[in-house]
Write a protein that binds this DNA or RNA. Structure first.
Length: 549
RNA sequence: GUCCCCAUCGUCUAGCGGUCUAGGACUCCGCCCUUUCAAGGCGGCAACACGGGUUCGAGUCCCGUUGGGGAUGCCA
C-alpha cells in the first residue's frame, strides 16, 4: 500500500489538509505501507517555496513522517527513484502523457479565451442551463492541430468518453455519475502547465500510489480522473473521500475563510484604502474577486491595521495559539474517525496519541457525514493534556512556545517554576499564562502598569467595617515581615493573622488580592504574592492605598 | 438551476434488526470543595428530521420528502 499527501503550496497547512494528511499517513502506517508527500505547485501564480517549507514543518510538527518526498531533516528522500516531488519539475512527464492522448485523438486543443468561456457560462446561467464544454461534432481536427502547431495560444482538453462512470469509494460506496454531467475538462493550461487533474493522475501512477484519500470536495473530480486513467492505461487506485470539516456556521472550513473574513470586514469598515498596508490596485482587485487570495503576511498586516481577528484555520494558527500537536492530531482524528472502543468505565475511548492512530487507523471506521470544528472541545482536550503533564514537561513545552511566539513576554527576574505552578491549572493553552487577560497577567505588568477593577475595589476594599482599606493597611505591616517570602509562609502568616482576629481568610485575602492584582481573581494568594516578591507587593499595596482609598 | 454526498443530544460521536426506557465526550446548569479564579469530585438538561414501506420486530434495511453540505475554474 502506498498513500500520499499532495498539498498545493499556497500557504500553511490548513486543518482540512492536516486531517487528510493524517489519515493517509495513519493508513499507510497501520497497513505497513509507504507514505509519500508530493508538492502540487502547478499554479504558478500562487505557489511559493516558503509555503512548501511551512507545509513540511507543519506536518512534522504534528508528528507525521514521510518515506518519500521533499527532504526535511531526516525525513523524506527518494529511495525508489520516483521523484522529483515537485510537479513543476515533472512537466516532461505530463507532456508525454498529453502527447499520447493527442495522437490517439483523446485530447485536443481548444482555442476559446477565458473571457469567451465566462460569457458562455453566464449565458448558460441566464437560461438556467448547465454549462459544460464539449467538442462539437463537426470539429475539424486537422485545422485545430495546425493552429496549435503554429503556436496559437490554447488549452488542451480531454475528450471525455460519453459513458456513465461509477466511482467505487472505500468510504462512501458506489457513487454513480451520468455521462451527461461530464465535460471535456482541461489537461493543459494556456501557460503550458498541466491542470491538477492531469498531474495528479500521472503522478499517482508513476509513484505507485495505491490509495488516494482526499476531501469530499474532490468527489466530482473522480470520474474525470478515472476516465483519464483508463485512457492512459493506468491502474485505478482505491479512492476514499473524507467528509468536509465545517466551521461553526456549517460552511466548509477553508483557507479562503481568512480572505473572506478580511474582505467582508474591509468593505464594511469603509476605511480609506490609502491607510491600509496593501497597494491600492491590488487591494481593489482582491476586494472585487471572491476567488482572490492575499498572502498570509498581507492578511496579517491588513488584520493588524484594521484591528481584526482572523479565524484560526491553519495548523500554524493553532500552534501559535498554544495548542499541543498531539492534541491537534487527536482532535482532528476524531473529526470523521473514531476507534469505536469503550473504556472499562463505559466511556468512549477518545483520547489517544499519534502512535495509537498509526496502529489502529482503518478506513472502515471513517464516517460519512460532515463534522463541525468545535473549538470548545479542542480547548478542553488541550487543557486536560496540559493538566496531566508533569512539571518539567510542561515547562519545556511552554518555554519552547514562548521562545517562538513571545520571547519578550516575561522578564528574566520572574520565578518561572512558581509562575507556571500558579498559571498552569488556569491555562488551556501554552499562550494563556502570558496572555494579556490571562491568569499570569498580574505578574507581567509593572507595579504601576495595571488598572484597578472598580467593582472589586468597591466590594473588597471600600466596603465593610472595618473596611478593606483599613485591613489592608494593617496587613501591610504583616506582609513586610513575612520570612521567608514563600507561598507557604505567606499563606500561614495570613491565616494566623485572620485567626487572631477571628475572621475568615477572605477578609484578608481579597483586599490583598485586589490591591496587588487589581482584580478579585488570581492564583492562590501565597503564589500570587510570592511571584510578585515582597518589594513589588508592598509597592502595590502603597499604590492602592494612595490611589484608591 | 443541475449533479454528488450526508442526516443520532447545541457540537463530536457509539450504535452495523431484538441487549436502546439510545451510551460517551465537549458545552451548559446545579451541588460539593474553597481566601478569589481555576482545577477536582458528584449530579442534571439534552437526540434517533419527517412520511411511507420491508420485517414477528427498525435508530439500524429500502423509497420519498425536507434540511444541510460539496461541486459546477485554463484553483487544487
Amino acid at each position: 500500500m502506498i498513500t500520499r499527501f499532495a498539498p498545493s503550496p499556497t500557504g500553511h497547512l490548513h486543518v482540512g489538509g492536516a486531517r487528510t494528511a493524517l489519515f493517509s499517513w495513519a493508513l499507510a502506517r497501520a497497513m505497513g505501507g509507504r507514505f509519500l508527500v508530493r508538492i502540487e505547485d502547478t499554479d504558478q501564480a500562487r505557489s511559493s517555496m516558503e509555503a512548501v517549507e511551512g507545509l513540511l514543518e507543519d506536518l512534522h510538527w504534528l508528528g507525521m513522517d514521510w518515506d518519500e518526498g521533499p527532504a526535511l531533516g531526516e525525513v523524506g528522500g527518494d529511495p525508489r527513484g520516483i521523484g522529483p516531488f515537485f510537479q513543476s519539475e515533472r512537466t516532461d512527464r505530463y507532456d508525454t502523457a498529453i502527447q499520447q492522448l493527442l495522437e490517439r485523438d483523446l485530447a485536443y486543443p481548444a482555442f476559446e479565451t477565458p473571457e469567451e468561456l465566462d460569457a458562455l457560462r453566464a449565458e448558460a446561467q441566464r437560461e438556467k442551463r448547465n454549462f459544460r464544454y464539449l467538442r462539437p461534432d463537426g470539429w475539424d481536427r486537422d485545422a485545430a492541430l495546425e493552429r496549435w502547431q503554429a503556436g496559437e495560444p490554447c488549452v488542451i482538453r480531454f475528450r471525455m468518453p460519453r459513458s456513465d462512470v461509477t466511482v467505487e469509494d472505500a468510504i462512501l460506496g458506489s457513487v454513480p455519475f451520468e455521462a451527461e454531467q461530464l465535460d471535456d475538462f482541461v489537461l493543459r493550461k494556456r501557460d503550458g502547465f498541466p491542470t491538477y487533474h492531469l498531474a495528479v493522475v500521472v503522478d499517482d501512477e508513476q509513484m505507485g500510489v495505491s490509495h488516494v484519500l482526499r476531501g469530499q470536495e474532490h468527489l466530482n473530480n473522480t470520474p474525470k480522473h478515472m476516465a483519464l486513467q483508463h485512457a492512459l492505461g493506468y491502474r485505478v487506485p482505491v479512492f476514499g473521500h473524507l467528509p468536509v470539516i465545517q466551521n461553526a456556521d456549517g460552511s466548509k472550513m477553508s483557507k479562503r475563510d481568512k480572505d473572506k473574513t478580511a474582505r467582508a470586514f474591509t468593505k464594511e469598515a469603509g476605511v480609506d484604502p490609502v491607510t491600509l498596508p496593501i497597494e491600492s490596485d491590488r487591494l481593489a482587485r482582491w476586494l472585487g474577486d471572491k476567488r482572490g487570495q492575499l498572502e498570509t503576511s498581507e492578511l496579517d498586516a491588513l488584520a493588524a491595521a484594521l484591528g481584526l481577528v482572523l479565524p484560526e484555520i491553519t495548523v500554524e494558527d493553532f500552534r501559535r495559539g498554544g495548542y499541543l500537536p498531539e492534541v491537534v492530531v487527536n482532535f482532528l482524528a476524531l473529526l470523521g474517525w473514531s476507534p469505536g472502543e469503550k473504556l472499562e468505565d463505559g466511556r468512549d475511548l477518545e483520547r489517544f496519541d499519534p502512535g495509537f492512530l498509526a496502529e489502529r487507523f482503518s478506513l472502515d471506521r471513517v464516517g460519512r457525514s460532515n463534522a463541525r470544528f468545535d473549538r470548545a472541545k479542542l480547548l478542553a482536550f488541550n487543557q486536560e493534556t496540559i493538566g496531566a503533564m508533569d512539571e518539567d514537561a510542561f515547562a519545556a513545552r511552554w518555554s519552547g512556545w514562548l521562545r517562538r511566539y513571545a520571547p519578550a513576554a516575561v522578564s528574566t527576574e520572574l520565578d518561572v517554576p512558581l509562575f507556571l505552578r500558579a498559571t498552569r491549572p488556569r491555562s488551556r493553552t501554552l499562550a494563556d499564562p502570558t496572555a494579556p487577560d490571562g491568569p499570569g497577567a498580574f505578574a507581567l505588568s509593572s507595579d504601576e502598569g495595571f488598572g484597578y477593577d472598580d467593582k472589586a475595589v468597591t466590594k473588597w476594599l471600600a466596603k465593610g467595617d472595618p473596611s478593606g482599606f483599613v485591613r489592608l493597611a494593617e496587613l501591610r505591616q504583616t506582609v513586610a515581615e513575612i520570612e521567608p517570602f514563600s507561598p507557604d509562609a505567606i499563606e500561614a502568616s495570613i491565616a494566623s493573622w485572620c485567626e487572631a482576629r477571628e475572621i475568615g481568610m477572605g477578609k484578608a485575602a481579597q483586599p490583598l488580592r485586589v490591591a496587588v492584582t487589581g482584580s478579585a481573581a488570581s492564583p492562590a494568594l501565597g503564589d500570587t504574592l510570592a511571584i510578585l516578591g515582597r518589594e513589588s507587593v508592598l509597592a502595590r499595596i502603597d499604590r492602592c492605598l494612595g490611589e484608591q482609598a
